[in-house]
């Protein structure tokens, strides 16, 4: 039972990331009709927003302290971060400690800008081109973004710690009435799950309860008619693209303590996210979210030893590596539209 719960938890944080990326992909696809292979790169850019902010906050003034000597006998250099100097010891250290949550604020304008520029500069010209062209051009863009990040940050993974108070392990077994210490889980991953739920809820509420969201939904259903009613639907769709970029970016920022980012992060997540979108059903937002969580949990179940040895017995070894693709293949063959796909979307 504990092991089962633990696997579900394990799946939830990975599933959250899949769900957030898939949500953004579906938003873009549903509004603009564009298949964005660069969405994983946006996730990665978000992660590197956190890295950058951590770097900026950590900038230090180097002073020479004549009273101390280092191991070579020279006067020791003391680094004082500027934030400590400006805000005092305790506030400064708190800011450094909370770099990742702060990076959320930092990343929103950055991602908005990137998303807006990307849509206006590139995607706009690809509305009417075949999907193959869209895939290819965004694939090229993903390579370019990846390489730019690589030249600036290097090819190695960069550690970004979570705030101290959230970095530990929390005993959630106790919350569910189990004995203390029976089910402990890293706090940050739980935070990530609730954060993802919040974002997903916010997006759905935004689409459901605001006028803007209503117009966007109308545009998704019938773009031409909405345009004929005198509404500038293109501008709204551009904003939706930027919002999707922000969602991917925020997901990336929060994921950094879980997986240290490198320039390959985007590509790793992109392939799986596309599988998630297809399994969920192209163009269906709830489908994308549900499939994200489902595949995340399935993946973590497949890595259990019991499950592994069971599948090995029926000649399907290392099921944890291939489960997602296997599920995708089965779903696409039995339910060609995906789990919640609507008729008429990407049918050709």
């Amino acid at each position: 039972m504990d092991a089962l719960l633990l696997q579900i938890l394990n799946g939830l944080d990975k599933g959250s990331a899949y769900a957030l990326i898939a949500l953004g992909l579906t938003l873009i696809f549903g509004t603009l009709g564009v298949v964005n292979f660069a969405h994983g790169a946006l996730f990665m850019v978000g992660a590197f927003c956190a890295v950058t902010l951590q770097h900026i906050i950590g900038l230090s003034k180097i002073t020479i302290d004549p009273t101390k000597v280092d191991f070579l006998g020279n006067p020791a250099k003391v680094k004082t971060p500027y934030v400590v100097e400006w805000f005092g010891e305790s506030a400064g250290m708190t800011i450094i400690d909370w770099a990742v949550p702060l990076a959320l604020l930092f990343s929103i304008p950055v991602m908005l800008l990137i998303g807006y520029a990307m849509e206006r500069g590139l995607i706009k010209h690809f509305y009417k081109r075949p999907h193959a062209d869209q895939i290819l051009v965004t694939f090229g863009l993903a390579i370019v973004i990846g390489e730019i990040v690589k030249t600036n940050f290097g090819a190695t993974e960069i550690q970004v710690p979570a705030p101290d108070s959230l970095a530990g392990v929390s005993d959630i077994g106790a919350m569910f009435g189990m004995g203390a210490g029976q089910l402990a889980y890293p706090t940050w991953r739980i935070v990530y799950f609730f954060f993802a739920l919040g974002i997903i809820g916010a997006i759905f509420a935004f689409l459901r309860f605001t006028t803007f969201g209503m117009v966007v939904r109308a545009g998704m259903a019938d773009r031409e008619t909405v345009g004929l009613l005198g509404i500038n639907i293109d501008r709204r769709f551009t904003i939706m693209f930027a919002i999707a970029a922000v969602v991917a970016g925020l997901a990336g920022v929060m994921y950094t303590p879980i997986k240290p980012p490198s320039y390959e992060l985007g590509m790793q997540f992109l392939v799986i996210s596309f599988v998630v979108v297809v399994v969920g059903g192209m163009g269906s937002l709830p489908g994308a979210v549900a499939a994200g969580f489902m595949l995340g949990i399935l993946e973590s179940f497949a890595s259990m030893n019991v499950v592994k040895s069971f599948f090995e017995a029926i000649y399907l070894p290392s099921i944890d590596q291939i489960i997602i693709y296997l599920v995708a293949i089965i779903v696409l063959l039995t339910r060609p539209r995906g789990l919640m796909g609507k008729a008429g979307v990407m049918e050709e």
């Binding site: 895939i135 596309f274 297809v278 070894p317 590596q321 997602i324 693709y325 696409l332 060609p336």
Partner: peptide
Amino acid sequence: RRSGIYFSILTLAFAQMSFAMAYS
């Protein structure tokens, strides 16, 4: 059995699966 983007993603999934299996 599928065309368009579904076909691209299916082939991508198969290739990634083969890649993962070749390593494991």
